[in-house]
Design a protein around this nucleic acid. Structure first.
Lengths: 336, 336
DNA sequence: AGCCGATCTGAAATCGCTTTCAGACCACCT
DNA sequence: AGGTGGTCTGAAAGCGATTTCAGATCGGCT
């Protein structure tokens, strides 16, 4: 055993077995309930375990069982309020099935994602990939390894991998329909990360929106409230849009903050619509019109999907969760 | 080997060694760079690894090395915006030292914390305990196991355990000083989880505040914006306070939202002060007066502390990080 | 009494990797 | 030539659990 400086010697199963006067096999059986053991031995083992404070070594168990009892989750950005909610649910599901959750963050950098996933595969029974930015080829390669993977908020046509997503396209379509119905004809979309599936799905909805008579122009932006704050000014100056769509709520709220500073009336002069419905209603200035998705259900279902994949290799149909439109205070008829 | 349904056979180090025509020991040496190996063998091993797509099994490595390459973090609530920032930093530090991060959430429930920590100890080299609510006795018992632990945002006098905290007491003292200076004489504190060290530290500052001539009454509340929203009304009705202190920013913002609904002027009628400075400035209605702590530095130092503990068993002094007062728009002289 | 089958137990193999240990090889020096 | 020392390599012994397999024990039945 390698020397572990200053650390107490490990208590192993054989310490317990000698203390209890039984074999290691019996200790294992008692602890895991995998076979009947005489009550007197059970008692002795239990007593020994308690008095020694024995805890089975997870690595050894993982090796012997061929399972780590762990699932891995990769998220682009922990600080994005969207993900903690999902993680909460995933963690709860995992725990309910006796697994731990390992979290990694790619910092929105597709380049490191591949390595992180590779690392997760080395130490997790299955991996949940949240909104991976990774190029399709990398993704395909990883999935080709036959290690259980579930895709979250990214659909890759033609890749046989269980996935669960929000119907971003449908959500944005609802937003457009809402605005068109109010009478808007031109809108500006503060666009998110261009490589992301989530963004292209939203954009895809704008083609259909033309049928409603709504024309949407794209504006480079990003995913943060700061980005929204910075991106909105040029739109106000140079565009004839009467409505502003945010890539997400943060962007929309950032834009709103800037507009408030500039004295632009909402929704009188411009309607502003968010996306995601992160629950900042209470703290935000305005009650934002937005579309929501049940984030905890999403996380729960993602967790369940992965669990199913792990236990019976069931390869479920890709699932889309619908979004719901919430008309609140920041949308109204166009000015003039 | 246990049968893993529908999964591809594992590629082990001995597959590689036979493919490369060398021993497993040599493969290990090449991969870990632990000893000089003839260049021709290195090349053969590299080639075999690449063509087989071999990845070392983390559990086996962990077992053999006596280290898991993993650190564990326990947080009370992932959804609390305070923690993702910390986790980001911890994860970055861990990764820089070649370790993965495992996250668990106790859902603010002290009862499950003990078990979770126990579980983390079984599969992590070290554990970072964030704001544990756990009773002192439980904590003492866990620390007594001689498994590396770092305490975050909780000091336990008399327990020999490295810890890093924010100087909540000093932060709240600054808040009180600020208010006293403005002329306030009575304030209400929307109190957080009563079991938490973070809360009692804040409250401890109120004794000193009396010296400034500021009297603070305690009001049961909680840690969420909803709690702040719900708790503030009775204060407005029955108290003669002219200032309201939140357990954290969320609470303060929730209270502000309610006050806005009720048409209460801030800071004209009441000053409101938060705690933590979660960066919602852009999205929130008001620029909240609050005290901040550099959350990423905090996370970074916590990570480093744990890492140090792991490599040289160094048992550093408990560290306190200072808070900084930010006077913004929600505090002013008392009414009348 | 003797035999059989059902239970329960322990010895030993196994999981995949690291690391020690000793041997092989080679160049060099006396 | 023979010895010496230094590299590099492979065999084998762990790491700490699980699980198979075979033996021991015991009750019941003929």
């Amino acid at each position: 055993m390698p020397h572990r400086p200053g650390r107490s010697p490990r208590i192993t199963i054989s310490d317990v077995s000698t203390a209890a006067g039984v074999s290691a096999a019996t200790v294992s059986r008692v602890l895991n309930g995998t076979a009947r053991v005489d009550q007197s031995l059970v008692d002795r083992v239990r007593a020994a375990v308690a008095s020694l404070g024995y805890r089975p070594n997870a690595a050894a168990q993982g090796l012997a069982r061929g399972e780590w009892g762990t699932i891995g989750v990769l998220v682009p950005d922990l600080a994005n309020p969207y993900f903690p909610d999902v993680l909460k649910a995933v963690s709860a599901v995992a725990r309910a099935h006796g697994r731990r959750m390992m979290v990694m963050e790619s910092d929105e950098d597709p380049a490191v994602e591949h390595d992180l996933v590779e690392d997760l595969m080395r130490c997790c029974d299955g991996v949940l990939l949240c909104s991976p930015r990774m190029p399709r080829a990398d993704l395909a390669e990883l999935i080709g390894r036959k290690h259980p993977v579930v895709l979250f908020n990214r659909m890759v046509p033609g890749l046989p991998v269980p996935s669960i997503s929000v119907d971003f396209h449908g959500g944005m379509t609802q937003v457009c329909g809402h605005l068109a119905q109010l009478g808007h004809r031109r809108a500006a979309y503060l666009s998110g990360p261009s490589a992301s599936w989530a963004n292209t799905e939203r954009i895809r909805a704008f083609e259909a929106a033309r049928a409603f008579g709504l024309e949407v122009e794209l504006v480079e932006c990003g995913a943060t409230s700061q980005a929204g704050y910075d991106a909105v000014m040029p739109v106000l100056e140079s565009s004839d849009a009467t409505a502003i769509l945010g890539y997400n709520d943060l962007v929309a709220l950032g834009a709103l903050a800037r507009m408030r500073e500039l004295g632009v009336a909402v929704p009188a002069s411009y309607s502003v619509v968010g996306f995601d419905d992160i629950s900042l209603d209470l703290v935000a200035h305005s009650k934002l019109t937005t579309v929501s998705v049940p984030r905890d259900e999403l996380g729960r279902r993602a967790g369940e999907l992965l669990e199913q994949l792990l236990v019976n290799g069931a390869d479920a149909e890709p699932a889309y969760l619908p979004m719901t439109l919430h008309v609140r205070d920041t949308s109204g008829p166009p000015r003039g």
